[in-house]
Design a binder for these strands. Structure first.
Lengths: 290, 290
DNA sequence: GCGCTGTCATACCCGTCCGGTATCACCGCA
DNA sequence: TGCGGTGATACCGGACGGGTATGACAGCGC
């Protein structure tokens, strides 16, 4: 009675996104009548009205909104499942680790080193991602594990293991007056008239309004800071990629950043488990606790 | 090309569990030949061998094991999706909160109270679960949110918000010699010859071997302690349900227990979001921080 | 070695159901 | 009151899921 087929979910998601049967059918590459029928069947089977067909357009009901979220997650999970299965068959004894390009150099190096030294070491392919792309990589099965940062990245639905807690620092142009300070507060750096704070994309990819430049990747940010156009707040390990034209000043009241190893739940694969084990051991070493 | 239908996944999971086509077909209520064909189609579509058909039996390949985990998660997600959609349609303005029976009385009371006082308050149905049942309730869509405890409960794949960090305490029969101590350590209470520590089920439902009794629910435990048959290690808030025949002694070196509010990821429902908001505000109140 | 049993795979047929085309009912609009 | 555009309905053909019968093959007892 509750056998939601993925075909039906695919159809429903498309209709819910388009709020228009004909356009949805076109996007799906089928005709409109079968699509209408499929949605009706889905509604009948569930015993629930998912879409309100008014004159001039279609709207989602509350239940429809719920199913939309669920269906999206399920469809993502199926493509991820297919991809993971294929990768498990082909690149056996490989493991793809997604990391934010430029972040956590040191931690990554140590993790790879420690993992390679383990007895049953599998080869680790490092996948450098843009801002917050790791979550997608994990969820759609392109990566087996990822280094991510709380509270920046969206860890919803992922298993995690904390690896490193860091202060945040302000990265400034070396010549700027504030660069000489030994420490700063958030209040100090907000509203500096000639040096707006860079804006990162939010989880949905949009930017909140503000004077600072919109940042897409770390190299762009580095250059803009070096040019004296902006400043940024980053975790302390970002020091590893600073230029001569950059200055780093600790922020006393910024929230701490936790770097975590994340992996998809329900993944009981031996290879990921091995990496997690290595990582937890790493964390317990005093050299990283500092 | 990667359109894993849920029917195929259902078939594959059954075969992978039975490791026997005919039995799997019987369980599925279909004949064996169509099942064989369906699995072959799945393998052909994925381009991956999922099952090794040896003489005398079938075994899972590595890729098959991966797909088995993924498929189970997906099938759970579909039944959960159907249930959540139906509940969203029928019990609108309701919200089901799963809690471990007997745990976190005070916190639960305060949470419900605070939530009821919110302006857009929806009614909260409290669902009392047995050991670690909350995770299943959340995952299969019977509950919208749950109070759970780290590190006891399996939080994999759930979103959480920390609510309360507590010490653990030892619950002893009131007359026992150790009951007079002002504090104890784990070493003190392990290997007490006449009072073995009670054993809780693990995440898979099994018990690790040991001398203590196997515990299924809190009332059973309470009685066994009162009878002087066992002792238990629990979080401090368990004091609220202690009997006169019980004594509680703080444990100095036991790991802390974090009670969290958990909910399924991708759930952007307004009602759950409201409860989470209430909960986070609760956490920030000093009365609970103590 | 010969059947016997039990495994999964193959061959073939049938009915369901998915998808397509044609059309309808309805609304807003000029 | 037509016209454009919406989703729903009617009907038809073909693909495909499911059933039965059978095959290929391994292990086992005689």
């Amino acid at each position: 009675m509750d056998t939601l087929e993925t075909r039906e979910l695919r159809y429903f998601v498309t209709v819910a996104e388009e709020l228009h049967f004909s356009r949805a059918a076109e996007r799906l590459g089928i005709a409109q009548p079968p699509l209408s029928r499929a949605i009706q069947q889905l509604e009948r089977r569930l015993g629930v009205t998912l879409l309100e067909r008014n004159r001039r357009g279609v709207t989602l009901t509350g239940a429809g909104q719920v199913l939309l979220d669920e269906a999206r997650a399920i469809l993502d999970a199926t493509t991820a499942a297919a991809r993971r299965t294929r990768r498990a068959a082909s690149a056996t004894n490989h493991l793809t680790l997604a990391t934010k390009a430029g972040a956590n150099h040191e931690l990554l190096r140590k993790l790879l080193e420690a993992h390679a030294a383990e007895p049953g070491a599998v080869e680790v392919d490092v996948l450098l991602c843009g801002m917050g792309e790791q979550a997608r990589m994990l969820r759609d099965g392109r990566a087996d594990a990822a280094l991510m940062q709380r509270p920046f990245d969206d860890l919803a639905g992922l298993d995690t293991e904390d690896l490193l807690i860091e202060q945040q620092i302000a990265i400034l142009p070396a010549g700027h007056p504030l660069a000489g300070c030994t420490s700063l507060t958030m209040a100090d750096i907000n509203d500096v008239p000639d040096l707006p704070v860079a804006r990162w994309p939010r989880q949905d990819g949009s930017y909140e309004p503000g004077p600072g430049p919109e940042i897409h990747d770390q190299s762009q940010l580095a250059q803009l800071i070096a040019l004296g156009r902006t400043m940024a707040v980053l975790c302390a390990s970002s020091r590893s990629w600073l230029w001569n034209a950059h200055a780093a000043v600790p922020l006393t009241d910024a929230p701490h950043v936790t770097t975590v190893l994340a992996w998809p739940p329900h993944s009981r694969s031996r290879t990921v488990a091995g990496l997690v084990r290595t990582a937890t051991q790493l964390r317990q070493e005093p050299t990283l606790a500092a």
